[in-house]
Design a protein around this nucleic acid. Structure first.
Length: 598
DNA sequence: GCCGTTTTCGGCCCGACTGTTTTCAGTCG
């Protein structure tokens, strides 16, 4: 333990506590285990660091953290350790917690393996593998040859660590041929992706699919003939789990139409949403499962199958909850009060506010590959009313401010001509913008003369990503204060799976943006999806307006807008929260209002 | 150990599979 534990480390600690209590399993520890696991989940899903909440005395405001856990976490933040936690953990060999990383090995089996095989604290899995290969596990009571094989398989998987989640764009590519294959079978009435893909999460683990059919057996058989099929991991009457190219796991579930609604609900998840929903249902005397709804006080009560998902939620007295909101936050409460937001949709989007053309702006970053004309053509296909060209700023090295202004003037002229010769279509105006680097000290590499040539400027970070939180915040605030700066683009700088978010004091950034009427971008590039969904929700709560931009470097990239809309929806965004869901006239009015404020 | 539209006490999600069992515990999603 240490004083500055981050949320992931704390969650891991709480899970270790849960495991310890489970191993010691006394009569009343069962629910204590659940409590610690709930607390771990809560911490993992938190949008701000727990340490910061503790600083503000708000630990117990986190649902799942009560007086006891709060007290002990507080002790850790203050002194670097919790005597109670250490006391409990000290009774369990450290090796046990490492073994929990193996699938199929939970607390009980991990403990027995560690004790009976006398596994070392260091590299216990390595020793376990050696013993398993020598047949030592099969001889343990309660274990057998099958268990030994399973454990070896888990160790192999652990060693390969294929624990990487896919980008949502990748998951969509992978799922399409499977859905197409399923639909070739006449028995398939409906075939749809569920799980995190249906909830439109930013990254996807496994692919979950559901089929509605009157003939489950035949559909299963058909699926097993999938031309790109890999190893079949698991199989039952109503489900198959198999690998497809790219080592992607596909779980298919098959139900009859009469219970398809409950299946959709169940396997769309999330786990947290389902748990919360079932707890809510219990209070109404109802028990929920993938097969339907059961009345508890009715002794002869059977499961009533539910055919449609809308009906499933209606039976519970709830509004239908869009999958994007099903994360176990407060969506059930909102649905009960008929208070769910009307989420923004792709068809509401009337503009793309970050596009890079091939106009040679002499930047040190990437140029786009499509011409302005090609991009306007694409924008018309997408039925947009306006777009903004946001090439990177000309490189500072090798250009004087005077030269930079000259380049910007050239682009201004080109856009003026473009605006006077717009082809027939929905596009009415093209804006002259620029994506400008925020330098490490918060200055911008474009002077005020240069900035004044633009209709408005986007600013974003492309260097020095690891500044400490206060410095980073000051840096961004300084840049946001330049004249004509309107949009803070891909604000966390994250690249999913590759680069962590920068550290920012969001409270301060949001208040500044609110005060100065600066907008924050939701970057729709599937590698970025930035602002992330949970911060979108916080921003909206603070009254911040958001823009959508694809960051397209070719006209094809403009198709990524839907991923940005996904993020907006997961952040509970309504149409009115999104700047470019407004028509041109409203947009221009907002631009002017903004100038007046600053 | 946590929590509250019935509760500050008395509850705590649901079903499936697996292997090692002679009726079920452990694990997973």
């Amino acid at each position: 333990m240490k004083r500055n534990m981050n949320n992931l480390e704390i969650a891991e600690l709480l899970r270790a506590m849960a495991a310890s209590y489970e191993i010691r399993a006394s009569a009343n520890s069962r629910f204590r285990v659940i409590a610690y696991e709930n607390a771990a989940d809560a911490v993992e899903h938190l949008s701000s660091e727990l340490k910061d909440l503790w600083d503000e005395g708000m630990l117990e405001d986190v649902s799942g953290i009560g007086p006891s856990i709060a007290k002990n976490l507080g002790e850790i933040f203050k002194t670097g350790k919790s005597r109670h936690f250490e006391h409990i953990l000290s009774k369990i060999p450290k090796s046990v917690f490492e073994l929990l990383d193996l699938t199929g090995v939970g607390p009980k089996r991990a403990y027995r393996l560690a004790i009976e095989l006398n596994l070392p604290d260091k590299n216990p899995i390595k020793k376990l593998k050696r013993l398993a290969l020598n047949g030592k596990i099969a001889t343990l009571p309660g274990f057998g040859e099958e268990s030994e094989r399973d454990i070896l398989k888990s160790i192999k998987e652990f060693e390969q660590k294929k624990e990487t989640r896919m980008l949502i764009s990748r998951a969509e590519e992978a799922v399409l041929p499977i859905i197409n294959w399923l639909k070739k079978d006449r028995n398939v009435i409906e075939a749809v992706p569920l799980g995190s893909l249906r909830r439109r999460a930013s990254t996807i683990g496994d692919l979950d699919l559901a089929v509605s059919t009157k003939n489950p057996e035949k559909v299963i058989k058909h699926f097993l003939n999938f031309p790109h099929k890999g190893r079949v991991l698991d199989q039952g009457d109503k489900y198959v789990s198999m690998l497809v190219p790219g080592n992607i796991q596909v779980d298919l579930r098959v139900h009859e139409p009469k219970s398809f609604g409950s299946l959709l609900q169940h396997f769309t998840g999330s786990k947290h949403h389902n748990i919360a929903l079932r707890e809510y249902a219990l209070k109404k005397g109802l028990s929920l499962s993938e097969y339907g709804i059961k009345e508890l006080n009715n002794k002869r009560g059977k499961v009533k199958p539910v055919g449609s998902e809308k009906e499933f939620y209606r039976c519970l007295g709830l509004q239908w909850i869009p999958p994007e909101l099903r994360e176990g936050d407060d969506e059930i409460e909102a649905a009960r009060k008929k208070n769910l937001p009307e989420l923004v949709e792709l068809k509401d989007v009337k503009a793309d506010l970050q596009i890079h053309s091939d106009f040679d702006i002499e930047t040190s970053h990437d140029l786009g590959v499509s011409s302005m004309k090609e991009i306007v053509k694409k924008a018309n296909e997408l039925k947009y009313e306006y777009i903004a060209f946001t090439e990177h700023n000309p490189s500072q090295r090798g250009h004087s401010q005077k030269q930079i202004v000259e380049i910007l003037k050239k682009k201004r002229e080109k856009i003026n001509i473009l605006n006077s010769q717009l082809p027939d279509g929905t596009i009415k105006k093209v804006f002259n913008s620029l994506e400008i680097d925020i330098l490490p000290d918060g200055k911008l590499p474009i002077d005020e003369t240069g900035l004044s040539i633009l209709d408005f400027a986007l600013i974003s970070i492309h260097s020095s990503f690891r500044l400490e939180k206060n410095k980073m915040t000051q840096r961004v605030l300084r840049a946001l204060d330049y004249p004509n700066v309107k949009i803070f683009a891909h604000p966390t700088g994250r690249l999913i799976g590759k680069r962590e978010s920068i550290e920012l004091d969001w409270e301060k950034i949001f208040s500044f943006c609110k005060e100065k009427n600066i907008w924050i971008e939701i970057n729709a590039d599937p590698h970025r999806l930035d602002l992330p969904d949970y911060l979108v929700r916080e921003a909206i709560a603070k009254g911040i307006l958001l823009t959508l931009g694809t960051d397209a470097h070719s006209s094809l990239g403009m198709d990524n807008m839907r991923y940005g809309v996904d993020v907006a929806r997961r952040g509970w965004a309504k149409k009115s929260d999104i700047i470019n869901a407004r028509n041109l006239k409203e947009f221009e009015t907002l631009l002017k209002i903004q100038e007046a404020v600053r």
